[in-house]
Each structure stands twice: as C-alpha cells, then as structure tokens.
Write a protein that binds this DNA or RNA. Structure first.
Length: 572
DNA sequence: GCCGTTTTCGGCCCGACTGTTTTCAGTCG
C-alpha cells in the first residue's frame, strides 16, 4: 500500500463527510492528513513503524492509518460508502458543483454518473430543482463537458510559457505598475491546474477588458472589478486579480499559497494578535503593512520564505528556527549535465549545442549520448564514441568561452552491468547511467541494477532515477532508501532530469536524498536544442527540494567540475 | 479531528463572484 493510496482514502472520506454536511473542521482535518501523507518522501509504513509523528495526524487518524495499512481499507470508509454512492463523489468533481448542489441533485434524481446528469441538464430537469435555475443548469452542463475533455493537471513546462505570454500582453496593452505570476506556477509545482496573475494598475477596468479578450480566451467565467477568470480555448483556467499598490505584497503572498501554507501563516498571525489577508497585515482595524511580501513574513518574525518552499512541509518551522536553506538559483548554474547530440538520437551538432548553451548563459555543457545497446535511440558504438571524444577535444582546443564535457548516458543492462566496458567509460569526462529497459522487473531486481551501477567507479550519476513520466508512466518499483544509502556511500550523484515530463528525481525525493548527503546533477535530457531551455525546470525542482548551491554540482565552474568528476574516477 | 507563546477545551483563514435571491448561500481559491 503506497502513501498515495492511504491519502486517497482520506480525501474520499473528506468528500463524503462534506456531502453529509459534517463539521467543516473535521473535514479539513482529513484533507490535511491526506495532504501530509501524500507529501511524505518516505514510505508511511516505515515512518509509523519507527513511531515518528506525521503532522495533522493525531490519535484517531493514526489508528485509522494503521487500520488501512493492515487491512487495506477502513471500516469507517466502507460504512460511508454504503451511505454515499461513489457516483455522488463524481458530481463533486464538476466545477461549480459543490456538496450542496450535488446533494440536491442526488436526492431528487438519484443521479450517479455524469452521462445521466448531462441528459437531465439537456432535458432541463435540473433547473426545476429548488435553488437552481437555468443559469446554474447551463454551468453544470459546461462543467461536465469540461471534465470530459480532461481537466487534469498539466506540466509546468508547458504552462509557464503561456503565463509569460499573457503577462507580456498585459504589460504591452495596459498601464502596469506591478505584475506577477502567483499560485502554483509561482511555487513551481511540477504540474498546475490553472494560472494566477496579480496586477497593480492605474486602470483596472482596462486591465479586465484586455484580459477577458486575450487572443487565447475561450470562455469568460467571471468578470468583476477586482477579479476575473477566463478559460483558454485549450480549457485552462486563468485567474486575474487587480490589487492596490499598498496591498500588493500581502496579496502576492495570499495568491501564491499554498493554501496549507496560508492557513498556517494566518494561524500564526492570530497568535500574535494580528490578522493577515490579501489586503495587508492588521492589528485590530489598523493596517500595519502589506506593500511588500517581506513585510508579511517580518510581521510574523520570520525571514522571507521563497515561494517554492511554501507547501507547509516544515518551511514555517525552519524559518522560525532560522534554518531555511539558501536555495540554489538559476544564476548559479554553470552547465547542463545531460544533452543528446546527433551522435545518437539528438538533433543538434556538437557546435550547435555549444552555441545554444552559450546563449542560455552557460559555461559548459555535458554531451551524453545513448550507449550501444539502445539501438532505437541510435546508441553509439565504441568507435563512434571515440570519434565523438576527438571532436569534442578539438572543439575545446579552439573555444575558450564555452567548454564541452564528453559524456555518455550508459545503459544499465538487465543484469546490472553497464553497456560499455570500464576502459571505454574511463575515456569519458562524465558518465550518467540509466535504466531504459525491463521496467516490469521486481523491486529487488531494479534496485540491484542501480546499486550495481553505482558501484562502478566511472559512474558519476544515475539518470532519471525513478523512470516516471508525468501523466504517462508510473515510477518503477525501487527501494529508494537502499539506493540513497548506496549513493551516499559511493559518492554517486543522482540526477534531477529537467525534461518537463520527467522532473525525476522530484522535489520530495530530492529533499529526502539530500538528507543522506547526496549530490545532484541537473540535466535537461534535451533531444532538440530548444529543450535545453528546460534547465530552469530542473532548478525549480531542486529549489522545491530545499537544495542549496553546494548540493548541485552544476554550480561548479568548468575547472571545478572537471576536477570533481576526475576525483570520482580515481577512488577505485 | 487536530492542537497548544490565550494549552486539555474551544477554537479552527477569509474574501470575491455568481446566481437566486431581496439579504444570502454556494462555490472557489
């Protein structure tokens, strides 16, 4: 039973209690517990066996967690399911339909699935219900169609450019004093559900006009004086808030979230006899600040907490103790440690990759092509690899402003051996080892393959360690504890793969690995030149994983990293 | 159901917009 499975049961219980009209704080307790379980970087069974506490889980919920782990379910949950049809929960998923509306529809028509509800809407049966009229019925219909189209979270790497485009248009067409992306995009979550934008302007009406008529608008959901929401033709919701200059910082805090972080901050404020909302910091009725985000934290006697950390995963406690990390920044990154070239399945020549790296502002880039057995990806023969070595050496002799590392992404074969012999690996500046086959093997087999690879002195890092692909493929089963211990013992780095669909290791696993003293390599895994710009996504993951400059070897200069990588080879 | 710098009971974050109302409930973030 995985953490996610336990969390899912608690989320469902919360939904069902909500429909029953239970105590809202009890409902919140279940959601908070679910979220905290979801965020655990370690297996919940292990955490509980060691008697460690999980925030938001008291005596009662702890008992329930244990019951789930032992029996695979929960009696209370099973009982709730007999009271509340699971189909009713699906109604809650419709945007615009909350517990109240779902309950009314269910009571009158016993609707259990979206198709039936859609038919009833089309027959105008829903608008005959108490408190529901034509407009609401139409909105429910829209919501159903939206769900059918898929309202899943989307990768940040695809959404961020859109958010930046909207900002650029608003800046161009309206008088803008300040403007920022807020919400989960600002916190750099790996996937996002919507885009939040905060703006301060001398002409709010004009801002709303421009916003609700943006070229990508498919639908205007709401248009108010301070808040408007649109849905793009692609079905993505974008919310815009206009705020006064003096509230900007407080509003930015508020709309950046996360919700869990905000709740903690507000609770903290209450204890200090203060109140914070999106309009500022208040002592009684008197506003004592809110123009800048820093003021909000300062009022709580806290240092500034970077958006990437605002998930209520311990950042407030760390801030109180003065133990916040100095997060690694994009400016500190000197190179990319995983780019494919034309030698294998990449599209760029050595020279083109170097040129692109220079444009991005890098000092060096490691070109890591696939190894010989990965035929579908144009894996290099030993002869071709040696040719590549020569070309890169020649390039480096004639270029001072950008340096190339000759690398390989060597396959970890089914028995854990590597796809090139040591005498070939030895010729490389940088070796990142990866599993590309046998995903269906057992946890023990897969774990042992990686462990064996880490024992090879020429292997510097493990590429995309868990193999997950966002929205497409689950991580393969691994004993990550064992892997972290081994990585630490052998001095092997772990990769944060920055390709927008991978982001692997992810934030919480990176944070867990850091506790073992492991160092990280960030690589874009770019197969076309433009993908090298995903580098920042890798930095976002690192920041969300609480990593500092010293944890990420991409922050080293060319001389430093060459020395670092060389040292690893001589350990044997 | 959790939790403690108003601590073992009594709190628990808070405001905008919509739609259906005629002062407010529901939903959302």
């Amino acid at each position: 039973m995985r953490n996610q499975d336990v969390a899912r049961i608690f989320y469902k219980i919360a939904d069902m209690l909500e429909i029953k009209g239970d105590n809202p704080f009890r409902i919140r307790a279940y959601r908070r517990a679910a979220q905290n379980i979801e965020n655990l970087a370690e297996d919940i069974t292990k955490v509980i066996n060691q008697g460690r506490k999980i925030p938001g889980i008291g005596q009662d919920l702890m008992q329930k967690v244990k019951e789930i782990l032992q029996t695979g379910t929960l009696q209370m949950y099973e009982e709730l399911k007999t009271e509340i049809s699971p189909g009713l929960l699906d109604l809650l998923a419709i945007p615009g339909v909350g517990p109240r509306t779902a309950q009314i529809i269910y009571e009158h028509y016993g609707v259990k699935d979206l198709d039936t509800l859609e038919r009833l809407c089309l027959e105008h049966k829903i608008q005959q219900l108490p408190g529901i009229k034509a407009k609401t019925e139409k909105n429910i219909l829209k919501g159903i169609q939206l769900i059918k189209k898929g309202r899943e979270r989307r990768p940040l790497g695809l959404i961020l450019p859109l958010a930046e485009e909207i900002i650029a248009i608003l800046k161009k067409k309206c008088p803008v004093d300040r403007i920022d992306i807020a919400g989960s995009v600002r916190r750099c979550r790996e996937t996002v559900k919507d885009i939040d934008i905060l703006i301060c302007s001398s002409s709010p009406g004009q801002v709303m006009d421009v916003f609700t008529t943006l070229p990508m608008v498919g639908d205007v959901i709401a248009r108010g004086k301070t808040k408007s929401s649109i849905r793009t033709q692609d079905g993505l919701q974008v919310d815009l808030r206009v705020v006064e200059k003096d509230c900007y910082g407080a509003a930015l805090c508020y709309f950046t979230g996360s919700k869990a972080h905000n709740i903690r901050m507000r609770e903290l404020a209450l204890k200090k006899g203060l109140k914070i909302n999106e309009y500022g910091i208040f002592k009684g009725n008197k506003r004592i600040g809110g123009k800048e985000e820093e003021e909000v934290f300062k009022a709580m006697d806290l240092p500034y907490i970077p958006p990437e950390l605002r998930e209520d995963r311990g950042e407030i406690e760390a801030a109180m103790e003065g133990k916040l990390p100095q997060l690694v920044t994009m400016e500190e990154i000197k190179g990319d440690l995983h780019v494919h070239s034309k030698y294998s399945d990449g599209a760029g020549t050595i020279a083109a990759i170097a040129e692109k790296a220079k444009k991005i502002g890098l000092e060096w880039v490691a070109i890591c092509d696939h190894s010989r057995s990965l035929k579908v990806a144009g894996g290099l023969s030993i002869e071709d690899l040696k040719r590549k070595r020569q070309e890169i050496d020649a390039f480096n002799r004639t270029h001072a402003d950008i340096k190339l590392l000759c690398g390989t992404e060597v396959d970890i074969l089914n028995d854990g051996s590597l796809d090139y012999p040591d005498e070939v690996l030895k010729l490389m500046d940088f070796v990142v080892a990866a599993i590309h086959t046998g995903f269906k093997q057992s946890e023990a087999t897969l774990t042992n393959r990686i462990i064996k690879a880490m024992e090879n002195p020429y292997v510097h890092s493990i590429a995309h360690p868990t193999g997950r692909i966002i929205g497409e493929r689950e991580a393969y089963p691994l004993n990550l504890d064992e892997i972290f211990v081994k990585a630490s013992a052998t001095g092997t780095c772990l990769e944060i793969n920055a390709y927008y669909k991978r982001l692997d290791l992810n934030d919480t696993l990176s944070q867990a690995a850091k506790k073992h003293g492991i160092k990280f390599t960030i690589g874009t895994d770019a197969h076309i030149l433009d993908q090298m710009e995903f580098l920042r996504l890798g930095v976002f993951v690192a920041r969300r994983g609480w990593l500092e400059k010293g944890d990420v070897i991409n922050t080293m200069s060319y001389q430093e990293i060459m020395a670092f990588l060389c040292k690893r080879k001589t350990i044997k």
